[in-house]
Design a protein around this nucleic acid. Structure first.
Lengths: 347, 347
DNA sequence: TTTTAGCACTTAACTTAATGGAGTGCTAAC
DNA sequence: GTTAGCACTCCATTAAGTTAAGTGCTAAAA
């Protein structure tokens, strides 16, 4: 367990700030100007040597200034940093952007990714509260003619999922009636995850009473259901990658960029909803492609409707204090907005 | 009007080929090896000086080798190049990729962009045959509860467009019945563009007979209709940009990349369906961001179902001969596949 | 008239050397 | 414990020199 004196702590803090703002290693003379106490550069050099022994700062070469190491950022984030109170202008932007009328939760969550990426100039990810916790409130099968049927699934929160299927024979509404009625009777009102579970077990059996050949229908229902229950990350500010990346190898940029298109990989990186705000720095991120970046994740809570996440990807040298403050504010505003939304549908 | 001797033509051709393959300016000595006739490097130098006077090739500095100018590429494409017969393996890939079962035209067209970008390692755009020519074959309004209604529009070609609306009051199927019947009576069977036209003129009046307050419904119908009739480009191989771009300025990459996300800008660049295969080189493209690239566009024809387009964006130094051959083949295969698809739905 | 050999010339790209500046570690004095 | 002073290290920049590729031009050959 590392313990720093007050002065060492101030020095580390100043190095983090300077390096984040200027992008260049910081020397002892520059620090003389900035520290609140009056000490000589030689003293600072002594302290810096100590910080380096502890592994909190590093040199790029024997006679260069210092920059924070991963461990240094870690210490800074854990013990020094105070979340900055969110800028009033930024708060206004958030509230205004979330203030409009939305027709779907996914729109709110998707837009959130965009707002956050604009505010930060970094790349953001958002995850809606898990749909599994929503309840099935309706299922429709609409024959469209031309051998096509559209399946529509509705939840109590107003989420709508639909999919069109091509089927061998033309079907009229009357033929589908008993199936839809079966679902209304047996499954409406249950959380989607329970419906999913039942689909594996008792539904096929029961459905056999209503339909001669239930397989085709089960495929359709299962497909829409799992599409609805699957989690989707929205990505904002993909293009911002160009602003903060240090890479110039096009191939590396390419793999990075393609990572952002793969929801499952993003899910691995960001992990399940957890406690409050978490900062992962450099190689603490479980993906080698991101080992030169930092990731701030925050879980937001919408009461009985479950939890969602927002996340921010940026350079290791980012203004953590401001970012953490911003994430906190956003987290609160988003949760509030979603609560409002759910309340509207619960009426 | 430029006319070249046989030998000059061969030299220009060789310069284009060498420069495309190697990426470096081509010198007179290298050409001695490659030309079919035996001439000295001095003779080639004389010919090259002439080609330079005509503006077909340029030097990067006083004593460098030559590379083709835009004008040089233009001449090459117009007068020298012969489309390469498409590689048998590539043809197999195309046929196999388009051979599967598709449920929607948009899937076929979207997948086409991906296949083409894989085959070429460049970036591709595809545009489906204009939906305006399709006929309205059905319209449904499905009440979903929770103040929501889904509007579904179906065409005779199996295209389905749907959109969910939130409305102030809950509505039952019975109330919508007359509206849907009105549409079935009056509009089904007409091309979408005619429906669009009528929506501006006679429909509002007629609808007033069926509904007290037709405005809300007209908004919904109009919205789905215009969403269906709007053209959409599919983009394939966005990431391939990293392979062939010469830019390393991240800001420029950024604007380029964001251009690919804007369907309307792409439409401007690629232009309306035209004649067969067209090659635009460098500043012949009407967008300054693309002035260092080349664009090959091809229009494909699906008989009475209208025309669509495929397009290819790559470096000015691209193997035009192979690419034009490939575009031709793809154009034919895609048209055939779509004809099959339409035939299936016309049954 | 066309082609070619030969040569002087140009330029980019690379290598080497020289210089200045920022910053460090260490020592000895305060 | 702190500081002034100094030798030392390394990067960055500039300057100079070298090489290789390629050209244009001239005069001779075909």
């Amino acid at each position: 367990m590392i313990t720093l004196t007050e002065r060492q702590s101030l020095i580390l803090k100043a190095i983090v700030r300077d390096y984040t703002e200027g992008g260049n290693p910081v020397g002892s003379k520059a620090l003389v100007q900035e520290l609140p106490m009056k000490v000589s550069s030689a003293t600072i050099r002594n302290e810096m040597a100590h910080l380096e022994d502890l592994g909190l700062i590093v040199k790029t070469h024997l006679s260069s200034g210092r920059m924070p190491s991963i461990k240094g950022y870690r210490y800074y984030v854990d013990h020094i940093l105070k979340p900055e109170k969110v800028d009033n202008k930024d708060l206004k932007v958030i509230q205004h952007s979330l203030g409009g009328e939305f027709h779907k939760i996914d729109e709110i969550v998707a837009q959130s990714a965009d707002i956050l990426s604009q505010l930060t100039s970094y790349t953001t990810f958002t995850l809606r509260p898990e749909l599994k916790h929503s309840r099935l409130s309706g299922f429709r099968l609409v024959p469209l003619g031309n051998h096509q049927v559209m399946a529509i699934l509705v939840t109590n929160n107003g989420d709508v999922e639909n999919q069109t299927f091509t089927i061998p024979t033309d079907i009229t509404g009357d033929e589908l009636e008993p199936v839809v009625r079966f679902i209304d009777d047996q499954l409406v009102g249950l959380p989607l995850q329970d419906v999913l579970a039942k689909l594996q077990s008792e539904i096929p059996l029961k459905l056999a009473h209503y339909l001669q050949n239930p397989d085709g229908f089960l495929d359709i229902f299962g497909s829409v259901l799992s599409k609805a229950a699957s989690e989707r990350f929205y990505v904002g500010g993909k293009l911002n990658l160009f602003n903060y990346t240090s890479k110039q190898d096009p191939q590396e940029m390419r793999s990075l960029y393609s990572l952002l298109d793969q929801t499952d990989h993003i899910a691995d990186v960001i992990g399940p909803p957890g406690q409050h705000i978490q900062v992962r720095i450099g190689n603490e991120i479980t993906n080698d492609l991101l080992k030169d970046y930092s990731l701030i994740t925050a879980t937001y809570d919408v009461d009985q409707h479950g939890q969602g996440m927002i996340a921010l990807l940026g350079p290791t040298a980012m203004p953590y204090s401001r970012m953490i403050g911003l994430m906190g504010a956003f987290q609160r505003e988003l949760a509030r907005k979603l609560l409002d939304y759910y309340r509207y549908f619960d009426e």
